[in-house]
Design a protein around this nucleic acid. Structure first.
Ligand SMILES: [Mn+2]
Ligand SMILES: [Mn+2]
Ligand SMILES: [Zn+2]
Ligand SMILES: [Zn+2]
Lengths: 128, 128
DNA sequence: ATTTTAATGCGACTATGTTGCAATAATACA
DNA sequence: TGTATTATTGCAACATAGTCGCATTAAAAT
């Protein structure tokens, strides 16, 4: 089950890196063109997530977005993604924010995943 | 454009109220049976949201959940839903939590919607 | 009772994401 | 370098969630 370095993989990773934010399948598809198949993009992204290089955000539009893991927290040696995201409703950009709010859960509840998205208008689009 | 009181509407509202939490379409469908059509359920729920009786949560499973508005905040006379939700990965229950974290956004950013979901194991399922 | 039109049921449709399978190509190894 | 192994790909089919057009039904207004 060793991972191989492939064309698709490199291109997708590069696209995610240069974007700086989180990308959905269709954002990637339009960046990369039709050379790479839809299923391949999804499979590559899922592998990236499994390997912990990338985290998945579920937007309030119901779509999956993928972002390179950069400032993700290290909670007792475990990689966590408990930061908030912002999705601009005008330009579509999705980005990772710095804030990692502490939520206290009811007694006996165990948190495994965080998915926090604020949507609105980003700085660039506010100016317009 | 006045709303009418219908059978479907009453049943769906009752189901939401007695559940106490947030329900997805398929949860409602299995509660109500096939007497009410799928499209109708969605349309009724969307109307409830428009009318501000119910709010919509996008789960980290990508599905829409709907909850009666009860402890939603009143921010300068505007109804807001900036509270966190919890989805149990074992029993599927989705509930509104009390916490309403203050997130500070980058300069120039405007927040319009909050969608915050923590998933994990709820109190009931932890005991098992 | 009659009219008006909001709401419903049904089917078709879109969108997002996954999976099976044969073909391809990245790696390991002789 | 040449060959064998198998991870990855492309394609098609599938699954699921949600929406929409349209004819029919049934609230509510008169
Ligand atoms: Mn991460
Ligand atoms: Mn509310
Ligand atoms: Zn992030
Ligand atoms: Zn809620």
């Amino acid at each position: 089950m060793k991972r191989r370095k492939t064309q698709s993989k490199s291109e997708i990773l590069a696209a995610l890196k240069t974007s700086g934010g989180a990308l959905s399948h269709d954002m990637l598809q339009s960046t990369l063109g039709t050379t790479i198949d839809r299923a391949t993009i999804y499979r590559v992204l899922n592998r990236f997530c499994e390997d912990g290089m990338v985290h998945r955000i579920i937007g309030d539009d119901g779509k999956q977005y993928f972002a390179i893991c950069e400032n993700c927290g290290e909670k007792k040696e475990m990689h966590t993604h408990n930061h908030v995201h912002f999705r601009c409703m005008k330009c579509g950009k999705v980005e990772c924010l710095k804030s990692t709010p502490e939520i206290d859960l009811p007694k006996g509840y165990q948190a495994k995943m965080f998915n926090m998205v604020i949507s609105g208008v980003c700085g660039d689009c506010t100016l317009i």
